[in-house]
């Protein structure tokens, strides 16, 4: 782990102090663009979250959002935690199965290419796919019912919590595959042999070598999947426009409130930005860590 990271600045130009001062101007278009289309709107959201009807600042809207939309918060949190957890488990398992399969040769690239498509899918198309399969009139529902189990007579419905969890797995698992596949490739067969030569069992290998190497990717993947599910809007909306989830509530309040005075949607959005900052920040830090490992493992 003590590999020295090559200093990227070392072979750069040694610009004079004067020129460097001007050089910052080169970033101006980029900075201006981000300011107008990302930073100012975001600050606008946060400001409005703390403004009340009389244009005075208060934290009331911010705390009200939690007390009044507690159910939406709780649902979003549950869906994100459950689909992230299951996504990490199934995604890592699938990636491992694909990476270690010797035959057929194209299997690994098929899994990774398909994961690229499915992880990027989401949106309303995904909702349609599952409505044809497990909607009330879906083909899968029909097959299950004909075989003696009517999902709609027990706990399942595509329009409620169970449905959203199932549908989200369609992009969560592939996303996790993409995150862990490089890390699994970084596990060298020689490590396993070394562990066996030293008398280690399969269990020892995983506990002492395998999992510690995969840990940053798995933990980072969990945070990424959490953020991914927490902020997903289109799929849940297409499954059920009335879902009691935070993203849907934000949109609902924005549509309903023509005056733009109510702090509710902005407070909910601010909370979401906070959640995202924590989970995506953690993910990016862990990704850097995992990448460093893969580079030194590949070297």
């Amino acid at each position: 782990m003590s590999n020295t990271v090559p200093n990227p600045i070392a072979n750069g130009p040694v610009a004079s102090r004067e020129r460097r001062g001007w050089a910052w101007l080169g970033l101006l278009p980029f900075l201006a663009f981000l300011a107008i289309f990302l930073v100012l709107p975001t600050l606008g959201v946060i400001r409005k979250a703390f403004l009340d009807n009389n244009h005075s600042y208060t934290t009331k809207g911010f705390t009200d959002a939690i007390s009044m939309e507690g159910a939406a918060f709780w649902n979003s949190l549950k869906i994100s935690l459950i689909t992230a957890f299951l996504g990490v488990i199934f995604g890592t398992t699938l990636a491992y199965a694909a990476a270690t399969a010797k035959r057929p040769k194209w299997l690994r690239s098929l899994v990774s290419a398909f994961s690229g498509v499915a992880a990027n899918m989401g949106g309303i198309i995904l909702a349609f796919l599952f409505l044809t399969l497990l909607g009330r009139q879906g083909l899968g529902t029909k097959i299950l019912t004909d075989n003696g189990w009517d999902p709609y007579k027990s706990w399942f419905s595509i329009n409620d919590f169970s449905g959203v969890v199932l549908v989200y797995m369609y992009f969560q698992i592939p996303l996790m595959v993409l995150v862990t596949l490089p890390a699994i490739d970084g596990l060298k067969a020689s490590w396993r042999e070394a562990s066996a030569n030293l008398g280690g069992t399969t269990f020892t290998y995983w506990r002492r070598v395998g999992l510690p190497v995969l840990a940053p990717s798995m933990l980072g993947g969990f945070l990424l999947l959490f953020a991914n599910a927490y902020s997903a809007y289109a799929t849940a909306y297409a499954l059920n426009t009335q879902s009691n989830l935070v993203p849907i509530k934000i949109s609902f309040f924005l549509r309903g409130d023509v005056t733009g005075r109510s702090p509710a949607p902005f407070a909910l959005a601010t909370w979401m930005i906070l959640f995202m900052a924590v989970s995506m920040g953690g993910y990016l830090v862990l990704r850097k860590r995992a990448e460093r490992w893969q580079q030194s493992a590949a070297a």
Partner: peptide
């Protein structure tokens, strides 16, 4: 990443 599309929509409404 920190400002997902739905939050950006709120940003459009706010700004």
């Amino acid at each position: 990443y920190v400002v997902p599309p739905i939050a950006l929509v709120a940003g459009v409404a706010a700004f």
